[in-house]
Amino acid sequence: MLSSYAITIGTIIVIQAIAVCGLNVIVGFAGQISLGHAAFFGIGAYTSAILTVKAGLSFWTALPIVIAIGGLIGLMLGLPSIRVREDFLAITTIGINFIVEALFRYIPFFGGALGIGGIPRIMLFDIRMKGIPFFFLCLFFLCIVILICWWFTRSWASLAFYAIREEETAASAMGISPVRFKLLAFVMGTSMAALSGSLYAHYMQFINAGDFSFPVSVGFLSMLVLGGIGTIWGPVIGTVILGVLPELFRPLVDYRILFYTLLLLVMIRFQPGGLLGEKSLVKNILSRTFKRC
């Protein structure tokens, strides 16, 4: 019998994996750094919370609006961001995260320091989604997101992204607009984050600005880097490992951010491709072991 504790951890992991998949579109596919992904996770959560709590919409009616708003704000913030140099982009996205968090915290409409409570559970076939059914609902959304990413890697768009990442000038000479494609990545990535945020809000039923602070962004990035930037399954693997580890070693929970940051540095230094990416030590060892058997 699965304990409710395990289901909670599992659900959070699946929800986070959706956000990390979105981050992967921005960082992995488009090659843009983003250190403020939690802002869009939060925008999704707050939008869905407000639409359901204050405007009385159902989760399902609100969802398309939430995703559209997430993408739209991604577009608006992406527009000035992608024109700056890479190191500035890192700073800019951190700034976005702090500003969005501050807006949530200090504007009364967003519930101020108290946040928003009483967020309704999702209704599906007249069932209030929680526990295992909700877990599977999240898993269903994760599958859709992964399917989109998988489809994406086989599309002309992904070829264009490859070209932009490697030689922007040459890509332009081939009819590719780097600005538009980077914006496309921002829109895709931030709307996935918004979806994830919405699920989070209806799972927790109570949200607070602190849930979407900068350390959460660092966590997302660590998960992505650990699993493998630019791969299909990397975001999922990374999120699972970083979601489970602190539960196995409880002391880690208090030092989560320190651990994430250290991991990020170590991975970027020694295994930039992540567990599933190119030149992966783990993949090497596994394939060698299997060959020997």
């Binding site: 086989r154 599309s155 002309w156 992904s158 264009a160 081939m174 009819g175 590719i176 607009s177 496309l184």
Partner: peptide, 15 residues
């Protein structure tokens, strides 16, 4: 892909 990159509807087709 040059004739595709300018159209949001065409870039999703498999290369």
């Amino acid at each position: 892909g040059i004739m595709k990159y300018g159209h949001l509807s065409r870039i999703w087709g498999p290369w």
